[in-house]
Design a protein around this nucleic acid. Structure first.
Lengths: 196, 196
DNA sequence: TTTCTTTCTTAACCGAGATCAATGGACGGC
DNA sequence: GCCGTCCATTGATCTCGGTTAAGAAAGAAA
């Protein structure tokens, strides 16, 4: 599927597009393809745009003692609004591609231009904005009160595909533990399942 | 000091008030006094207002297996914008007073009425809004990468008064550990200090 | 295929926090 | 005053994740 069609698909989740609208969307030049390891935003930079992951997988992390502390993964149709973009301050986080990815990016201005062209889309953008706050991943609450093992089981429930698509050592970082510990947790879980 | 004057004091941090303005603020009837244990917001309720703690100490927590998991403390001049207020959904959290407290509360409408009366205050409210996001307490980052002992030392640095004003078992809950563990951490720290 | 690298698993040991239980101190009500 | 409740401390024991080190497994490159 072409990159342009991915954006058409994205909107089609929310709204039925006329052929003219499809045409116009495909003419918008706001989509880029990235290789594994490419950066959407580096630590210290000020984000110039927001992102929408159309295909692939992207991670947001920061470095501590040379170690990546992964805060979030973004996959198909996940929007990314960097704090650095909202605040216009240098980013604490780096955002980079875990897989080859196709990502649409937009500024406030380009979004406004887009919405002037497609006023029908305004309610959709509002809806998406709500999603962002609602679809919080592991929160501070979880880290405070849940053990790593429970956090992993929650992740298996809520984002099973993710576990099968990114390396385990990244999942471990996301859970805030060492790869060895995740390995033990997986073993513990599978041996418990055998018992039942 | 009277409750009304506390609100005058609060604004005086940011702006010099004319006697007329002081008069008008004191006429605003948006301040209430609470006893220790009183609730500002209960779990399941939809928040009707935001709050500003003028005096005293307030905690935000949720219950898990009958245990209070404290997420935040608010003391003098801390504003509280409940998620439940923003989303107009039943609150996951309870907000209640750790000490006898004096709290000002306001809705979007009452704030707008207030700002129409005092247009000079608009930039102050913007400034306060920025503070809210900036003055984040222990974040998900901290819980992911820091040990409870380090978290406690950070708390001692950043909010030393808090540790001396709320019971230790609440501090423990806020740090995500058991009271016994906090006791041991304190012992460890003080014995290390003696060595140096 | 073979080789090299990256990732995952396993084992042994250590330390920190959880849990259970007992003790002692502080404070309020009687 | 005394008693009872709540809270902080301490000890013993247990569990889990961290650390170190080694080896197995899976891919990528030759």
């Amino acid at each position: 599927m072409s990159a342009d069609n991915l954006l058409v698909n994205y909107f089609s989740q929310y709204i039925t597009l006329s052929p003219e609208e499809v045409e116009l969307i495909q003419q918008e030049d706001i989509i880029r393809e990235y290789n594994k390891g490419d950066f959407l935003l580096r630590e210290g930079q000020i984000a110039q745009t927001c992102f929408l992951v159309l295909k692939g997988c992207v991670k947001r992390y920061y470095l501590e003692d040379g170690e990546e502390k992964i805060m979030d993964f973004y996959t198909e149709n996940d929007p990314i609004t960097p704090v650095s973009y909202a605040e216009q301050k240098p980013s604490k986080y780096t955002i980079s591609c875990v897989e080859p990815s196709i990502v649409s990016s937009g500024t406030t201005e380009s979004t406004e231009r887009f919405l002037q062209k497609f006023p029908r889309f305004v309610p959709i953008f509002v809806q998406i904005g709500d999603q962002i706050s609602a679809k919080k991943q592991l929160s501070a609450d979880d880290y405070k009160s849940l053990s790593p093992e429970i956090r992993y089981q929650k992740l298996l429930e809520h984002r099973p595909a993710l576990v099968n698509r990114v390396p385990q050592y990244m999942i471990a970082s996301y859970l805030g533990i060492q790869p060895e510990s995740l390995s033990r947790i997986r073993k513990r879980i599978s041996s418990n399942q055998k018992k039942n």
